[in-house]
């Protein structure tokens, strides 16, 4: 068993990685043998991030917390299936997004989700406060677009990692992010123009 542990550790804590990742790899090895302290460490590291991603997808803080909790439970129960082929964050966000999909009763991210919960884009928000405007515009993006944006801009995941987390091809990630940014820019420009006219 010790041999297996050290092998896993060597795989996950490859030379040249940051101390943070090395530390995380050591905790993951401990979590794999059911060490509760390791679970607590991973919870403290990923709790807020999981909730943030889930909020972007589900749009409801209470539901997002439930989703994050469920994702942690699934991740810890199946942590032995994490072999270090990808970063733990990628593997974990895949689970978070999977739980969010289940909550939205969707099978895949592939199919573009209809803009059911989006506000009418024809009615731009008041441009008084930039933060309010940005949030309002973000709300008008579809959940997969928001998920891809948050993974890229906040979590700093690479396109390949986002593709893995969302379970979609890399090309789709690129086009989705590009579409999300283009849409955001278009709405932003319109608001700026209207504010200038006013």
């Amino acid at each position: 068993m010790t041999g297996e542990l050290s092998r896993s550790m060597a795989v996950m804590a490859a030379p040249g990685e940051t101390t943070d990742e090395g530390q995380e790899a050591r905790w993951i090895v401990r979590a794999r043998i059911g060490d509760e302290a390791a679970f607590a460490w991973l919870l403290s590291r990923y709790r807020a991030r999981a909730i943030r991603v889930a909020i972007q997808v589900l749009h409801r803080p209470d539901e997002a917390e439930d989703a994050a909790q469920e994702a942690f439970i699934r991740a810890f129960r199946n942590i032995r299936s994490f072999r270090g082929d990808s970063r733990f964050a990628t593997w974990f966000f895949h689970i978070v997004l999977r739980v969010c999909l289940d909550k939205k009763r969707l099978k895949r991210w592939d199919a573009e989700i209809p803009w059911d919960d989006a506000v009418d884009p024809a009615a731009p928000p008041d441009a008084g406060d930039t933060r309010v405007v940005v949030r309002a515009l973000l709300d008008r993006l579809s959940p997969p677009m928001r998920a891809a944006l948050i993974l890229r801009e906040v979590e700093g995941l690479e396109y390949e990692e986002i593709a893995h987390a969302l379970g979609i091809p890399v090309g789709t990630v690129r086009s989705r992010l590009s579409a999300a940014r283009a849409r955001f820019r278009a709405m932003w420009s319109r608001i700026v123009e209207e504010t200038d006219h006013a």
Binding site: I51, I55, A68, R131, V134, R135, L138, L149, E153
Partner: peptide
């Protein structure tokens, strides 16, 4: 830039005390 700034500065609601 506004999109990036807002996404990164987004507040995350405090989870329930018994979350962990």
């Amino acid at each position: 830039a506004a999109l990036r700034r807002e996404l990164r500065g987004m507040d995350v609601p405090e989870p329930s005390p018994d979350f962990d």
